[in-house]
């Protein structure tokens, strides 16, 4: 925990304070990480979100049909995706794909003396390695969440249009009527917080690897488990703050 807090404080220093002392972070590595964390994860996110949208619509149809309330299927799909399923499921995908990759990459760099070499070259590892990944994750996870929300709603539309008696206009109007902007914003805030949690836990695990390949494997597993747990607990806390306590 001490290392984790130190890493977070160090990140804040390099992002918020260091640029004012002339130590700017470079933009190029941030875009490279955005491509890795965001763009290359898009197909996986799309498939997951579409499946979730389809599943939600089918479950909603099954439950609401008996009550004669099929017209609320778009509402359920829309609100569930924007508030909960979108941010959480896409965070799960990113933890499994990008979080584990970051932990493994930094862990391998640690055991192969690359990080020590950076230090000896007077290049701060947090500035050089963690800051680009952190900023990329902070931008790309919310972007992926918005993308996933669209695809999930498309999945719901597919079920409603092809299996039920909805027409496209009716589905869109009903979906838009049911949700307000706060539903979208709450999901975005969640995804930003999740991004912070995922990348800091992954980087911390990688930078504190001990041992060789075995240590890298253990750190990667630990980063996935810790990030998942932290993300789910934080999701419950944020849902409580946004929709229960308010």
């Amino acid at each position: 925990m001490k290392n984790y807090i130190q890493l977070n404080l160090s990140l804040l220093y390099w992002i918020l304070i260091a640029p004012f002392t002339g130590q700017f972070f470079k933009i190029g590595p941030i875009f490279r990480q955005m491509v890795f964390i965001g763009v290359r994860a898009a197909p996986m996110v799309a498939l997951t979100a579409f499946s979730v949208g389809v599943t939600l619509a089918m479950q909603a149809a099954h439950s609401l049909e008996s009550l004669g309330a099929e017209m609320y299927i778009p509402d359920l799909v829309m609100i569930t995706l924007l508030r909960e399923m979108g941010p959480v499921l896409i965070a799960v995908i990113v933890i499994g794909r990008s979080g584990s990759a970051v932990a493994a990459e930094l862990g391998t760099m640690k055991v192969s003396e690359e990080i020590e070499a950076l230090e000896v070259m007077a290049i701060n590892p947090v500035q050089y390695l963690v800051v680009p990944r952190f900023l990329a994750m902070l931008v790309m996870l919310p972007a992926l969440t918005i993308f996933g929300n669209y695809i999930g709603i498309l999945g719901g539309w597919a079920v409603c249009t092809f299996a039920l008696d909805f027409n496209t206009a009716g589905y869109i109007l009903r979906a838009l009527e049911s949700a307000d902007t706060w539903d979208l914003y709450s999901g975005m805030i969640k995804s930003v917080v999740f991004a912070w949690i995922i990348i800091t836990i992954s980087c911390n695990a990688g930078l504190n690897v001990e041992g060789g390949a075995e240590g890298v494997g253990q750190a990667t597993t630990a980063s996935v488990v810790q990030a998942l747990l932290a993300m789910l607990v934080m999701n419950a806390v944020l849902t409580g703050i946004f929709f229960f306590a308010a």
């Binding site: 290392n3 130190q6 890493l7 404080l9 160090s10 701060n124 930078l207 504190n208 001990e210």
Partner: peptide, 15 residues
């Protein structure tokens, strides 16, 4: 165990 980073830094454990 090499030295930690200045101030808010994490600690490395070298072998």
């Amino acid at each position: 165990r090499p030295r930690p980073f200045l101030g808010a830094r994490f600690r490395f454990h070298h072998k």
